[in-house]
Amino acid sequence: MTTSKNQVSGNHTLKEQALREEICEIGASLYRRNYTVGAAGNISARLDDGWLITPTDACLGRLTPAQIAKVDLSGQWISGDKPSKTLTLHRAVYDNNPLMQAVVHTHSTNLVALTLSGVWHDSAVLPPITPYQVMKVGRIPLIPYCRPGDPQVAQQVKLLATSVRGVLLERLGPVVWHESISQAAFALEELEETAGLWLMSRNKPEPLNAEALDELYRVFGVRW
């Protein structure tokens, strides 16, 4: 049984529309729960012929599918509203980790506050204090402050795209990537909640010990 060009084109159109709707759904969910405010944050997804990304200066809580910007494989804007200036940062992930299908960036309060008060280590902004943090997020490094849109950030992310699930931008918030938009958002949420636990703890909890981390690796295949 052969597949016609029209069938392939139709499948691509359906996939793109589903991704547009998922971006709007996840954006609205993050906005309602104050993971992002105003016109901060952005979400992108990989297509066979390019990428979708939220528009520049757009509120993630008020997007429509038609507003989502589409760019082709050369980075040229071809439809929707003007794409976010963070496209170069997102492409640093996509171009260097072919398994990743989505990137989510927010200015989440707890994680930005963590960079202001001092992260645990530059190589791991939080210690491994809960099993789900280890399982869903893993080690997240800090990217020292650069202005929004600075190409230096993309260069640093390029080197990290296959070794971690995301990064924390000093004073700007997390950038998390995954195999779907929802999975990237869920990982970001887990990271944000863990930061909140850490910041609210007067006596900082000890990290999970080596035995506990080894057990998580043996049972779930996740490594810190």
Rank of each mutant, 00 (worst) to 15 (best):
Q156K: 15
G118D: 11
R62W: 02
T194D: 01
L188D: 14
E22R: 10
S117K: 11
T194C: 09
L63T: 04
Q155D: 06
D214H: 00
P141H: 11
A92P: 01
V37Y: 11
R165E: 14
E25P: 00
D81Y: 09
P141M: 06
T115I: 10
R139E: 06
P174D: 07
E16T: 08
T3I: 15
A154N: 14
N11Y: 10
P148H: 04
T2H: 09
V137S: 09
E189H: 03
V112E: 14
V119S: 01
I129H: 05
S4F: 03
P144W: 04
A40D: 15
N42Q: 12
V103R: 06
S79Y: 02
E179F: 00
C146H: 13
L114M: 12
R46A: 01
E215K: 13
I181T: 07
I129D: 05
L142E: 04
H12W: 09
D214I: 00
R32A: 10
N110W: 14
T162I: 11
T3D: 11
A39F: 09
R202D: 06
T54L: 03
E190W: 11
V167W: 12
V137Y: 08
Q152T: 14
V37M: 10
S84C: 13
P128Y: 05
L73M: 15
S123Q: 12
L199C: 05
V175R: 07
R139S: 09
I78L: 08
W177Q: 05
V157P: 06
N6P: 00
L30G: 07
S108F: 05
E193V: 01
L142F: 04
K5Y: 02
P141A: 05
W77T: 10
E22V: 03
T36C: 01
Y35Q: 05
G10L: 04
P207R: 05
I43L: 11
L99Y: 09
S182C: 11
P55S: 07
R223N: 12
A40H: 09
G166H: 14
G221E: 12
D49I: 07
D48V: 08
R32M: 03
L199Q: 13
A28D: 12
P83A: 10
V8E: 15
S117W: 06
T13Q: 15
Q76L: 12
E190A: 13
Q76K: 15
V125S: 02
P65D: 13
M135G: 06
D49G: 09
A40E: 14
A184D: 11
Q133T: 12
C59F: 07
Q76T: 14
A124F: 04
A69R: 07
Y94V: 02
P151R: 11
S79V: 01
W120V: 05
L191S: 00
W198H: 07
F220W: 02
E25Q: 14
G221P: 10
S123M: 08
I26E: 07
H107T: 11
R202I: 12
W198V: 09
R147P: 00
K136R: 15
R46L: 01
